[in-house]
């Protein structure tokens, strides 16, 4: 019987020998999550800004909808998109199910509420006088917007890292939407799930180590940024 220590040694060997299949899986994970977060950030930022600075009807409703989305489990997001994208579903024409695009869509849906909610909190942490000072000093709306974002940069960075941390480690939606297809949609979490179901722990542990290192790095950065968010009046 392969012991835990043996599996771990094998895992480290896999990681450091540059095992092509392993690193391909890691690459797919990062690629999909980077694309998802890149697409999700601009609209999420606009939403956060609108929630902070505009008073439009339905604003409170939007905030509660977003908070609700925050706590929706990933598998439910996966299921919803699955139904939409499946051949029998309304968007079946696009033939997106079990592609990386479907995974990206799922991860966008998962990261958007975090980005919007944490972005909203970060922007709320910026004194309203920042916007007004910018405007009265002659900045147009766009420049004032980027100034406020600059003032909130640490909080916004924390939102980004938190969202990224969630989607890159998420298994439910990726499995349902991507299908865990080798070379195409197999990412770190789905590969771990698969290796465990095969009873092959080495690769699972190797990928787990990658996620642990990533989680540690993200948390270290997060702590750093949160420590520096300081609206001194």
């Amino acid at each position: 019987m392969e012991s835990l220590s043996e599996s771990t040694v094998n895992a480290l060997a896999l990681l450091f020998s540059g095992n092509a299949e392993l690193w391909e899986i890691i690459g797919i994970s990062f690629r999909v999550s980077f694309i998802a977060i890149t697409v999700a950030v601009p609209p999420a930022l606009m939403t956060a800004f609108a929630l902070t600075y505009l008073h439009f009807p339905g604003r409170r409703l939007l905030i509660s909808i977003n908070s609700t989305l925050l706590s929706v489990p990933a598998v439910v997001v996966g299921l919803t998109l699955y139904i939409l994208l499946s051949r029998q579903g309304p968007l079946g024409e696009w033939k997106l199910l079990f592609t990386q695009t479907a995974m990206v869509l799922g991860q966008i849906a998962l990261s958007f509420p975090i980005l919007a909610a944490m972005g909203h909190a970060a922007l709320q942490g910026v004194d309203r006088r920042a916007w007004e000072t910018a405007r009265t000093l002659g900045a147009g709306p766009l420049r004032a917007f980027s100034t406020v974002i600059r003032e909130a940069r640490f909080g916004l960075m924390a939102a980004l890292l938190a969202a990224f941390g969630r989607i890159i480690a998420e298994v439910g939606a990726s499995m349902m939407l991507g299908g865990n297809i080798l070379h195409y949609t197999r990412n770190i979490p789905t590969a771990i799930a698969l290796e465990t179901s095969k009873g092959e722990f080495s690769q699972g542990i190797a990928l787990g180590i990658v996620l642990l290192v990533l989680a540690f790095t993200l948390n270290a950065l997060l702590q750093n940024f949160q420590g520096r968010g300081h609206p001194v009046s």
Binding site: S86, R87, K95, L97, F98, M175, G179, N180, I181, L182, H183, Y184, R186, T190, A191, L194
Partner: peptide, 21 residues
């Protein structure tokens, strides 16, 4: 690799994937 896809999932799921693809 060009036409062969390893799903790594149960039979029911693989039938769904094959149907979609």
């Amino acid at each position: 690799k060009t036409w062969y896809r390893e799903a790594g999932q149960g039979m029911g799921k693989v039938l769904q994937i094959a149907a979609e693809l």
